[in-house]
Amino acid sequence: MTSLPTPRGLTDLRALTPARVALGRTGVSLTTDALLDFTLAHARARDAVHAAFDVDSLAEELDTLGLSPLRVASRAVGRRDYLARPDLGRQLDPVARAVLEQQTSTADLAVVVGDGLSPVAVQAQAADVVRRLLPRLAAAGISVGPAVIATGARVALGDEIGALLGARIVLVLIGERPGMSAPASLGAYVTFGPRPGRTDADRNCVSNIHAAGISADEAAFKIAWLVREALARGSSGVALKDESGDGSVAPRLSAP
């Protein structure tokens, strides 16, 4: 007779996720430990948003990967401006725009690394993701232009950058809004045919890249698949479903 599996309890669930489940209570309130943990997580999330963006160290890391990074800024002046005016984070500063207008590139892909809402996430993971991504792109015959490091960046800033560089596709690696259990989560956004006016429906996103989420290697695999397929199909976003984990889909090894 086949025995039934032993039921799993809340303790097992808590071991599988950093999410706050089964916190317990004292009267009508949280326990002291749960409240202190929440307060600490909230402080870490706030610190991640306001952390300094170390452009120099990031540029050095990307330079060692052969990407010769350019440095630009959005029209958001300072962190307060960035948080209060998301629209300014989607537009290049005039000086930065002039710099990019002088660049000439015939590369398929433009890589943009922006601080976003968690500079901590960018410092921790962006260079590692790029390092693991480049060999996959090279194997697929996809050329990569100079990287662009953007300060005060929102995701859509990559559309203007990609258009100015003449890239067929843009990849934006950016710090995601900190969660209470993931203050250092990186997001990757792939957009075919970048140009101002693109919307989120035109992008594919690989989210939750952090120590307790998607690993840098897994993210690089998914990003490479999305870039390759977007170039092959001539579209991204809602027109491109992420089937990178589906073994029945034959990979395309080169762009047309």
Results as ranks from 00 to 15, higher is better:
A230V: 04
P178G: 15
G213A: 12
A201W: 09
G247V: 11
P251T: 02
G175N: 02
A216Q: 13
V190N: 00
E229H: 08
I214A: 01
G237Y: 03
P196S: 13
D200Q: 09
V238L: 13
G179D: 07
A188P: 04
L231R: 08
R177Y: 03
L231D: 03
R203T: 03
V190W: 00
F192R: 09
G213Y: 05
D246Y: 05
V238S: 08
M180S: 13
P196V: 10
R252C: 06
L173I: 07
L173S: 03
D202W: 00
D217M: 12
F221K: 12
S235A: 15
V170D: 08
A216D: 14
P196T: 10
S185T: 05
T199S: 15
V206W: 00
W225D: 10
D217Q: 14
A220I: 01
C205R: 00
E176I: 10
G213V: 08
R233C: 02
S235Q: 13
L171M: 03
P183M: 05
R195H: 13
V170I: 11
V172C: 07
E229L: 05
G245Y: 02
K241R: 14
V190L: 03
K222D: 11
K222P: 07
S185Y: 09
F221T: 10
G197T: 05
S248E: 10
G193M: 09
G247F: 07
A224M: 03
G187N: 11
L165W: 02
L165H: 03
F221L: 13
A220W: 01
L226H: 08
L253N: 07
I209K: 00
G237R: 01
L240S: 06
D217N: 12
G166W: 12
L165G: 02
I223N: 08
S248F: 14
I214G: 01
D217E: 15
R198A: 15
S215Y: 00
P183R: 03
R203E: 04
Y189T: 08
K241D: 13
P183Q: 04
G166L: 14
I174D: 02
G187F: 12
S181P: 01
L240D: 07
R228S: 15
G213D: 11
